[in-house]
Amino acid sequence: SGVNQQQLQQLMDMGFTREHAMEALLNTSTMEQATEYLLTHP
């Protein structure tokens, strides 16, 4: 699906929903950016 499943699982383990985590990974290129994205786009 174009996203790193390991990163997706890590974000879900942090408490984010699958949909939200996927959106973040699709819009960013690193785990750090994805986390930042999730925190700034709740």
Rank of each mutant, 00 (worst) to 15 (best):
T40W: 08
Q33M: 06
Q6F: 10
Q5V: 13
A34W: 02
Q6D: 13
G15L: 02
S1F: 09
Q6W: 11
Q5P: 14
E36G: 03
V3F: 09
N27F: 08
Q33N: 04
L39Y: 13
E19Q: 10
T35I: 15
L11F: 05
M22W: 10
Q5M: 14
L11N: 00
N4M: 09
Y37G: 08
L11R: 00
N4S: 10
E23A: 07
F16S: 03
T40R: 06
E19L: 10
S29T: 12
P42S: 15
T28I: 02
L8Y: 03
G2A: 14
M12V: 13
L26Y: 06
T30K: 02
H41S: 07
G2W: 10
N4I: 09
L38F: 04
M14G: 04
Q5T: 10
M14Y: 07
T40L: 08
Q9I: 10
G2Y: 10
M22Q: 08
Q5I: 13
E32R: 05
H41K: 05
L39G: 11
V3Y: 08
T35L: 15
A24G: 04
Q7F: 14
P42C: 14
P42V: 15
G15R: 01
E36D: 11
T35V: 15
M22S: 08
L26S: 08
E36C: 15
M12F: 03
Q5W: 12
M12P: 00
E23K: 07
A34Q: 01
N4D: 12
T17H: 12
P42K: 15
Q5H: 12
L26E: 10
A21V: 15
P42G: 15
Y37R: 13
T35F: 15
F16P: 01
L8A: 03
E19D: 14
E32T: 05
L25I: 07
L26K: 09
Q9G: 06
E19P: 10
A34P: 00
E36F: 04
Q33G: 07
E32D: 07
F16I: 04
Q10F: 13
Q5L: 14
E23Y: 13
M31P: 03
T17D: 15
T17R: 11
G15I: 00
N27L: 09
Q7Y: 15
E32N: 04
H20P: 04
S29C: 13
E19M: 11
A34V: 02
Q33S: 05
T40K: 09
T35G: 04
Q6L: 11
Q10T: 14
N27G: 04
M31W: 12
P42N: 15
R18G: 04
E23G: 05
G2I: 13
E19G: 10
A24R: 00
H20C: 14
L26Q: 10
R18M: 11
Q7D: 13
Y37T: 08
M14F: 06
L11V: 03
Q7A: 08
N4K: 08
D13S: 10
Q7I: 08
V3G: 06
Q7C: 11
M12Y: 03
D13R: 08
A24E: 00
H20K: 11
A24D: 00
Q7S: 08
N4L: 09
L25F: 04
E23C: 11
H41A: 06
Q10P: 03
G2M: 13
G2E: 12
Y37D: 12
S1A: 14
L26D: 05
F16L: 01
Q10D: 07
L39W: 09
Y37K: 12
M12N: 02
L8G: 00
A24Y: 01
V3R: 06
P42L: 15
